[in-house]
Amino acid sequence: MSLFVAEGLVKRFGGLLATDHVDLAVERGEIHALIGPNGAGKSTLVNLISGLLPADAGRIVLDGVDLTALAPHQRVHHGLARCFQITSVFRNDSVRDNLLLAVQAQAGSSFRCLRRREAETALMDAALALADRTGLAAVLERPAGVLPHGMQKRLDLALALAAHPRLLLLDEPMAGMGPEDSVQMIELIGRLRSETAILLIEHDMDAVFRLADRISVLVYGRVLTSGDAAHVKGHAEVQSVYLGTEAHA
């Protein structure tokens, strides 16, 4: 049985069918890339899976548990975490406070209101461990908003990792990065393979071909085909609708 299954997902915006009966499966330990031209509905799909957008139809199952009816924050507790295409961190807070906030969401109740959070050493340790793993230990005290773009992207990823996800949704983690940052990010994502399955949306084909075990191509809200890199590269329709346009761009 696959780790994650999405069945018949549908999303309409007015007359536009942004997600058109999408079926998608992610296996354990797999990095599954989702590619497609702009406007294909990739971000919409991630929003449907994470629950930030309600789906009009379809089903989402993670590890045998049906998450369809759950609110987005409940899905996180079942092991479904995500990053954002437009980096989403707490810009005015230090990196440390960002990480603490992420760690806190998983460890006990956030309705605790009398004990000072700074006194909770377990939280602090978890946050520091997370910083070490994601290469943010050197910038702990800096406000997130002033970090270079690549670092902010990494922080975004670190926030998602705090949930100990079983499936991690990455919405263009390399967007807007220079080559050096990209290399680091690819390395970091590669290392995550051992702890979580990943659904990776990415425009950087180089990164996709280096990381992905399987690739699905989304066009006009539909999955055109799924398969390994060789299959996708050799797929005639993909070449015409996707790789073709990409080559011209």
Partner: peptide, 29 residues
């Protein structure tokens, strides 16, 4: 003042600054 520095206070400020992210972190916003 005390609550402002507690877990709850930090969560509340997180919601103020970036509600969507808080949802995605798993907070019952």
């Amino acid at each position: 003042s005390r609550v402002a520095h507690s877990r709850y206070g930090h969560a509340l400020r997180g919601i103020r600054d970036n509600e969507t992210r808080m949802v995605a972190l798993g907070y019952p916003v």
